[in-house]
């Protein structure tokens, strides 16, 4: 374990990403303590520029909501959506990919055709359909984002399983009389996981972006303080009071960048072939 940690610490991308991620995490954790009031409630006169009012450091939006409070509380929502949606996506992907890759043959054919069916529909369109059908509560949106994002991890896991399933150590375990479930979970999966973990960080970033895009279109849950919601709200005043959209946009940028950089760092740490080059 420790060489991987050391490799991660040596990766500049990974360290910057980790610091940014800690900052976002810090914002999410301190939101309730720094801004105890409901971020959706009226905080003052609408459309105050940042710095104009010392009580509202980042100003207010067109509904008079405190942008700083919104950003801090929004970090919670974004992280929650990122984690939960990628858990759903990776969960489904690992399950389908593992079964397809491990058994091969017609099982693989069938599961891959289903995967392709999902892949041929553009992600966002599928997401819009799901939200249109099932509503726009936070939980539904999270699951829907997971449902549109599982195909890539699935293909990744399947490829790993295909290359691992006939390795001698798996055959040896099979020769010991191990059952399939144990072979998959205990022998193959742990060796297939490193690239999936790396990819999970990308899925998280994509999940956050998808939620923001939905919110921008006004299709996300309106009762939560999500960054996308604020960008959507600022759309109508984009020319004059651009900061209403720009500040949450910056927050999204930082968070997505943090996840991508962490992913790069994890890749450096978990992929020993890349380490040589470093």
């Amino acid at each position: 374990m420790s060489p991987a940690v050391r490799a991660y610490l040596r990766s500049p991308a990974g360290m910057i990403g980790l610091l940014l991620l800690l900052a976002v995490l810090g914002a999410a954790l301190s939101a309730g303590w720094l801004f105890p009031r409901d971020p959706l409630s009226l905080a003052g006169r609408p459309l105050q520029w940042p710095g104009q009012n010392p009580r509202l450091p980042l100003g207010t939006d067109n509904l008079g909501r405190d942008i700083a409070s919104f950003i801090f509380h929004g970090a919670r929502v974004s992280l929650l959506i990122g984690l939960a949606a990628s858990a759903v996506a990776v969960g489904i992907g690992v399950l389908v990919g593992a079964v397809a890759g491990f058994y091969g043959g017609w099982v693989d054919d069938l599961l891959m055709r289903i995967t392709e069916a999902f892949q041929t529909v553009p992600n966002f369109i599928l997401l819009l359909v799901l939200v249109a059908v099932f509503g726009s509560e936070l939980s539904v949106i999270t699951v829907a984002i997971g449902l549109v994002g599982w195909t890539a991890p699935c293909r990744l896991v399947r490829a790993e399983f295909l290359s691992l399933r006939n390795r001698e150590f798996v055959l040896a375990a099979r020769g010991l009389g191990m059952r399939d479930a144990r072979l998959i979970l205990g022998e193959v999966l742990p060796n297939a996981l490193p690239p999936v973990i790396v990819y999970a960080s990308v899925v998280m970033a994509v999940a956050i972006l998808l939620e923001s895009a939905l919110a921008f279109l006004g299709l996300s849950d309106p009762n939560i303080a999500s960054w996308g919601n604020m960008i959507g709200a600022g759309r109508s005043v984009l020319r004059a009071e651009w900061y209403v959209s720009a500040i949450p946009g910056l927050a999204i940028l930082v968070t997505v960048l943090a996840f991508s950089l962490v992913g790069q760092g994890l890749n450096d740490a978990l992929n020993p072939r890349m380490q040589v080059a470093a």
Binding site: R167, E168, F169, L171, A172, G175, L176, R182, E187
Partner: peptide, 27 residues
């Protein structure tokens, strides 16, 4: 039981030697 050719490929790199040997009887 079978013994394999490649001493590097035939042991799961993520299991300790003791577990590798004990898992058969445990199963």
């Amino acid at each position: 039981q079978m013994v394999f050719q490649d001493p590097f490929a035939s042991l799961n790199p993520r299991r300790r030697a003791g577990d590798l040997i004990a898992q058969g009887p445990a199963i």
